[in-house]
Structure formats: structure tokens, C-alpha cells
Nucleic acid binder design. Structure first.
Length: 269
DNA sequence: CTGGTCACCTGGAAGC
DNA sequence: TGCTTCCAGGTGACCA
């Protein structure tokens, strides 16, 4: 579920409450996530969380002598609750901070909790991530350069984390609508101008989603337990057959790389 | 290298 | 009501 905006909303909520606080205990109820939760994670008590950063869809908790790397997969959420709150099904891991705890819930268990003593950017899962979409590094020229020699369609390219980090299925679809580009357009055929438009659309879409608290379709809640509302503003995502909010033509659905793509045949070329 | 497919896992909705 | 099938915010591994 969580794409960049949901991870960023989570990060901001956690940073406000946890930065500078010491881990007083760790509870691992279910270590079978995307990768087994390493035994070392159970012995983090005593360390202080200095800061919380984000790279793509990864959250990085700086603990001084190492980083805790968190990923929410398809169905994960991180909530701050009073320590001692009864655990529900799928509440796999708690990080205790005195009277507060950070709790990972993840029904599908595609998420990850990893520890690394190396700089996190050097970790094998992060080392090959592409440009941060909200950074200045992503602009029309950069996107044009990334797309220029690629035979794939633009939509799967946007979702390829080695190219751009953090754009998932919802926001790839929504960004392409805003840019007026069909998801099936071949990346290499996009003009410099259309790439500039798309780069702006990606940033505008992600920023608007963050302001709305992210999207909550099934599972996602922010660290305070509140759902996001951006799903109410979708132009195309999960709107197949319904009229385009701009021109009225029915939204179409096609499948690319086993993921659903949605577009308006009138507004997107 | 590239592009395409499969696998991992659970739960909700739709179909019969 | 109950069973079956399909689908879902991700991404590493594997193949040609």
C-alpha cells in the first residue's frame, strides 16, 4: 500500500514524537516478514533514535552506531500507541519508548525490519535506488535522460525504483494523468517538454498526497491512527468505466507488468 | 545490461 | 451460507 507519500506522512509523525528518545525494549511476535527479522533487532534497547529519514519507500532510524531500516511493503503501517496496548492480529513488532511504543502492523508481511551498521545508503536494498522524486535532481532534463534509451512504457519506468525511488502504482497513474501522457507511451519517445511536464506532475501529485495525509484504500493509517484522504481526489486510479472528472470520457484500465494502469483516453495521449 | 514473469502473504469483494 | 476466484499501495529473483 504505502508509496512515498504514505511513508513520508508516517516519517513526519514518528520524527515529531520519537527523535531523541531511547528505545527501552523490543518485542518481536512474528519475525517472518519479507526477510526474517534478525536476532540483533531484539537487542536494540538502550539506543537512542537520533533522527528519522526516508529514502524512497524506506524509513531509516538513525541509532548512532547503526540504522534500523523499515519498509511497509503492501499492507504495513506504523502506529504510536501507549505502551501496553493489547496486540491485535498482524501486530508483529513493537519498539518500546518508555510509556510509548511504535507498533508495526502488516497483514501481508511484505514489509521489512532490518539492522545495518553500515551507512544505510550502502545497504544492498538501497544502494541501487534511483533519484528522489521530490528532490531538485528530478527535473525535465533528468527525466528525459533517464527515459531516452528505454524501450519500456513510461508507466513501468516510473515505478522502477532503480530509476525513480518511491513512485508506486497509484501515484504513477495519477502523475501520468496530470501530465496528459498515456501509461503505455514508450519512454524513449517522450519529448523533452513532455518529460518536464511529467516531472512537475510527479512532484505536484506527491506533494498534494502528503498534504492530504496520504491515501487510505484498505490498510493505511498514519502514526496517530488517522487515515489519509487523498483517495477522494484520484483522477483515474481504480476508476475504470467511470467518467473522467475532466472530460467525461470513461476511464480505461489496462494491465502493464501485472499491475493495473488507468487512463483517460481523451485527456492522455 | 534490458525487459518480462513469478513468487512471497493475507483478506476483502465479487461470482456462482 | 459457503465455496471459488480475483484483486490489492512492493520488489527481489530469475529467465531469455
Amino acid at each position: 500500500m504505502p508509496e512515498l507519500p504514505e511513508v513520508e506522512v508516517t516519517r513526519r509523525g514518528l520524527a515529531r514524537r520519537l527523535a531523541g528518545r531511547a528505545i527501552s525494549g523490543v518485542v518481536v511476535r512474528e519475525p517472518r516478514l519479507r526477510w526474517p527479522v534478525e536476532p540483533g533487532v531484539r537487542s536494540l534497547a538502550g539506543r537512542t533514535v537520533r533522527s528519522i529519514r526516508r529514502r524512497g519507500k524506506y524509513l531509516l532510524l538513525d541509532c548512532g552506531d547503526g540504522h534500523l531500516i523499515l519498509h511497509l511493503g503492501m499492507s504495513g503501517s506504523l502506529r504510536l500507541q501507549p505502551a501496553g496496548t493489547a496486540a491485535n492480529k498482524h501486530d508483529h513488532i513493537d519498539l518500546l519508548f518508555g510509556d510509548t511504543m511504535l507498533r508495526l502492523r502488516d497483514p501481508r508481511r511484505f514489509g521489512a525490519v532490518l539492522w545495518t551498521a553500515q551507512p544505510p545508503e550502502a545497504h544492498r536494498l538501497l544502494a541501487h535506488l534511483g533519484v528522489e522524486p521530490l528532490s531538485r535532481a528530478l527535473d525535465g532534463a533528468r527525466l528525459h535522460a533517464l527515459a531516452r534509451d528505454r524501450r519500456v512504457a513510461i508507466k513501468p519506468l516510473l515505478m522502477d525504483s532503480r530509476t525513480i525511488a518511491g513512485v508506486g502504482n497509484i501515484y504513477a497513474n495519477e502523475s501520468l494523468f496530470r501530465a496528459g501522457i498515456r501509461p503505455t507511451a514508450r519512454a524513449s519517445r517522450l519529448s523533452r517538454e513532455r518529460c518536464a511536464r511529467l516531472a512537475r506532475a510527479i512532484k505536484d501529485t506527491l506533494r498534494a498526497a502528503i498534504r492530504a495525509g496520504g491515501s487510505s484504500l484498505r490498510d493505511f493509517v498514519a502514526s496517530d491512527g488517522n487515515p489519509g484522504t487523498f483517495q477522494q481526489r484520484y483522477w483515474v486510479y481504480e476508476r475504470a468505466g467511470r467518467p473522467c472528472r475532466r472530460c467525461g470520457e470513461p476511464i480505461r484500465r489496462v494491465v502493464q507488468g501485472q499491475r493495473s494502469s488507468y487512463f483517460c483516453p481523451g485527456c492522455q495521449r
